[in-house]
Structure formats: structure tokens, C-alpha cells
């Protein structure tokens, strides 16, 4: 039997905010398996984004262990974490975070180019994925020429370009209207057929698209 793709073992995360310490996660234990589509929900300040950042190697726990593919992130140095993000994880951010001066193909290609893959091969894959997501006519456009939904689709392609086993999305529909948000959720649902997807959201509809719902309150699993 395969082990979990992402595992939290009694994870505690404390942030320093000025002179105060804020406990973002307090003793969270969680396992996420292959090809699961997990939706994480909770009120503001419940620790949802912190949990996602820990899963994605963008942060490390204060105590406890986060394992990605069976490897503990707290024992990894910065380079190893970076390579983990490059190869194993695709990120989708709430505010898209596309580079304005690059066109959508270049934006989508970034992680693969950083990994040193041949540019031609990467471009072909990016164009193919963009066409699949309905952006075939917009290849040479820059992000500011796209709608919110289109930008988010580009962000999803960027997350998939290195064919990672894990896709993490932080409020992927937070900046989109209802209809567009539904489109994005459907795309993520398709993505989840091939890989593990974890999304953090306020959107109640998202729960219906996932295979599992995890609720957080005050840093603990509810």
C-alpha cells in the first residue's frame, strides 16, 4: 500500500507578530494520499494558508514534522526545499502572481526553464497545456491583457508544467467572479484525476468538487 503523499505529524507553527507570538497551527496531524482532492476550509486566521505553505515547502514547522513524499521538510536546506517545489509541487496563488513583462507562454514555462529543461520542449508543452485550457488564441499576450479567469488558468498551467505529483492552490477562486470560479474548480477537478490537489478556500461550493473536506479552527483540525 502506498504511503501518504503529504503528511503532517503533530505540527505546530508559531509566527512572531511584533512582540506577540501567534500560534497558527497547534498540533495538527493529517495525511493526504495520492490523487486526493482535498479542500481545506475555515474562518480567517484558522491556519489554512499556513498549512498549505508548510505542505508546499514554503515554510517549515516550529515543531512536529511535515513530510512530502516521505521526506521531512524541516531537515531540508533551502536548496533542497527549492528543488522540492520545482519538481514535486505546483503552486496556484490567489492573486495569480504572473510576471507582467512576460507573455503567458513564458510565464507558464518558468518552473521548467528554471529546472534547465530544453527551451523548445518546454515551450511546446506550455503551448499544449494552454490550448487545453482554452488559451490557444492568447499565446503572445501579456497578463495585463487577460481576464482574471484567464490569468488563473495560466497560473494552473505554470503549476503543471513540470508534471508535479502535487498541486497546491491558495484561494484559487478568491479573486474571481462566481462563474469563473466554477470554471477554475472544474479545471482543478480534472487535474486531480492525475495528481494530488489541495486547495484552501472560503468558497463553500469548492467542497463539492473535492474528495475530502478538512476544516480548521484556531489552528486545530475541527
Amino acid at each position: 500500500m502506498e504511503g501518504p503523499v503529504i503528511e503532517f505529524r503533530n505540527v505546530r507553527k508559531v509566527h512572531a507578530q511584533g512582540r506577540r507570538d501567534v500560534v497558527a497551527l497547534d498540533g495538527v496531524s493529517l495525511q493526504i494520499g495520492r490523487r486526493e482532492f482535498v479542500t481545506i476550509m475555515g474562518p480567517s486566521g484558522s491556519g489554512k494558508s499556513t498549512l498549505l505553505h508548510l505542505a508546499g515547502g514554503l515554510d517549515v514547522p516550529t515543531s512536529g514534522e511535515v513530510l512530502v513524499g516521505g521526506n521531512a521538510t524541516s531537515s531540508m536546506d533551502d536548496t533542497t526545499l527549492t528543488l522540492l517545489r520545482r519538481r514535486e509541487i505546483g503552486f496556484v496563488f490567489q492573486f495569480f502572481n504572473l510576471i507582467p513583462s512576460l507573455n503567458i507562454v513564458q510565464n507558464a514555462s518558468l518552473p521548467a526553464l528554471l529546472a534547465g529543461r530544453p527551451a523548445g520542449e518546454v515551450r511546446d508543452r506550455a503551448e499544449s497545456l494552454l490550448k487545453t485550457l482554452g488559451l490557444g488564441q492568447r499565446m503572445d499576450h501579456s497578463p495585463e491583457e487577460l481576464s482574471g479567469g484567464e490569468m488563473q488558468r495560466v497560473a494552473i498551467v505554470r503549476a503543471l508544467i513540470t508534471d508535479p505529483p502535487i498541486v497546491l492552490a491558495d484561494e484559487p477562486t478568491g479573486n474571481l467572479d462566481t462563474a469563473t470560479g466554477v470554471e477554475i474548480l472544474k479545471i482543478l477537478q480534472d487535474v486531480a484525476r492525475e495528481r494530488t490537489v489541495v486547495i484552501v478556500t472560503h468558497d463553500d461550493r469548492a467542497a463539492g468538487y473535492g474528495t475530502r473536506l478538512v476544516r480548521l479552527r484556531d489552528g486545530k483540525l475541527a
Partner: peptide, 16 residues
């Protein structure tokens, strides 16, 4: 800053 943060998030090492 934001751009560098994004690039680091998607896999750019500090050396790069």
C-alpha cells in the same frame, strides 16, 4: 520583491 518571491516559490534557487 514580489517577482523574486514568486520565482523562489516556483523553484528558483538563491544561487540562480
Amino acid at each position: 520583491t514580489r517577482e523574486i518571491g514568486l520565482l523562489r516559490a516556483v523553484g528558483m534557487t538563491t544561487g540562480q
